[in-house]
């Protein structure tokens, strides 16, 4: 029983790592542009498929294709922002929300067109798991968790040590003051998309390693990603880390009690609970 619990908890940490990387991007974008980016799940999927092209087309190992996928997804995010969202910035944020829903659908169509509608995987065959006592640990799971930890640390350093990172926090804190201080908003917004898109690519690759690639994979994971961001207090990237872990853990642990198909419902339930009890998220911020 305890072993089961630990085993499922391990899956929870893996899922939590994936959700965290997605939720950080959602939170950063919300903090600066003030809208819920509904295309984020599909951006994750796009990143995963970019990596697939290198794995299948050029025979790269997954880890080596990740940097290219990160850059490609970051560029895609910046391009979408420049071509579409930027023109809608002066309008009410709800219009951006609808626009991003449309982008989500469009990205999914592009994925279907380019890579096909079927399930795909990076590496065929079954990975030999390691045994730690009675625990079964897949090497991929270790890479996912380690990768997430490294990226979160890198993001922390970026946000606290670099000028651009601090400007992102400043804009999220107080947009008007950032503007009158002369912070170049559009440049910082581009950086935000680059970071959000890059992290989304990694989250997508990890999700594909853990499960499989499918055009709807991004849309399916959107709800837990947003639940994580809301749990952490949307707009606060650090909260997203805790939110991602809680949601990931709750979703996996719930499978010990209820039908696993309803995992998203667990994320939804926690999110709703949070909205009732504490809409500002787990960590009260400056509001």
């Amino acid at each position: 029983m305890l072993m089961d619990f630990l085993q499922v908890g391990l899956y929870g940490v893996v899922l939590g790592s994936i959700l965290t990387l997605g939720a950080i991007g959602v939170s950063l974008i919300y903090g600066i542009l003030r809208f819920a980016h509904f295309a984020h799940g599909d951006l994750m999927a796009l990143g995963a498929y970019f990596a697939l092209s290198l794995v299948v087309g050029l025979g790269f190992p997954v880890w080596a294709s990740a940097p290219f996928a990160i850059v490609a997804a970051a560029l895609a995010a910046i391009a979408i922002d420049q071509i579409v969202y930027r023109r809608l910035r002066r309008v009410e944020p709800v219009i951006l929300l609808i626009s991003s829903f449309g982008i989500a659908i469009a990205l999914r169509s592009i994925i279907q067109l380019v890579w096909g509608p079927h399930n795909q995987v990076y590496v065929k065959g079954i990975q030999m798991p390691w045994r730690v006592g009675d625990l079964i640990v897949k090497p991929d799971h270790v890479w996912i968790v380690l990768g997430a930890v490294v990226l979160v640390i890198a993001l922390h350093l970026f946000l606290t040590r670099t000028k651009t990172g601090k400007a992102m926090r400043a804009m999220s804190d107080n947009m008007d003051l950032a503007l009158v201080s002369g912070i170049p908003a559009e440049r910082v917004i581009m950086a935000t998309w680059a970071v959000g898109g890059g992290l989304a690519a990694v989250a997508g690759i990890f999700l594909a390693m853990d499960t499989r690639l499918h055009p709807v994979m991004g849309w399916s994971v959107l709800l837990p990603v947003f639940a994580a961001a809301i749990l952490g207090g949307i707009g606060r990237p650090y909260g997203a880390i805790a939110g991602g872990m809680v949601i990931g853990m709750a979703m996996e642990l719930s499978t010990m009690i209820i039908d696993p198909t309803y995992k998203p419902a667990v994320a939804f339930g926690l999110m709703v609970l949070m909205l009732i009890v504490r809409p500002q998220g787990l960590f009260k911020g400056n509001a």
């Binding site: 926090r169 400043a170 804190d173 107080n174 003051l177 911020g285 400056n286």
Partner: peptide
């Protein structure tokens, strides 16, 4: 330079970081 009446600091940032943001350019 302009100091607004309200909401004139970056609340989640330190004093030092606030000043750095003032000198961003």
């Amino acid at each position: 330079s302009y100091v607004p009446q309200e909401r004139n600091v970056f609340p989640s940032m330190t004093v030092h970081e606030n000043l750095e943001m003032g000198a961003f350019i």
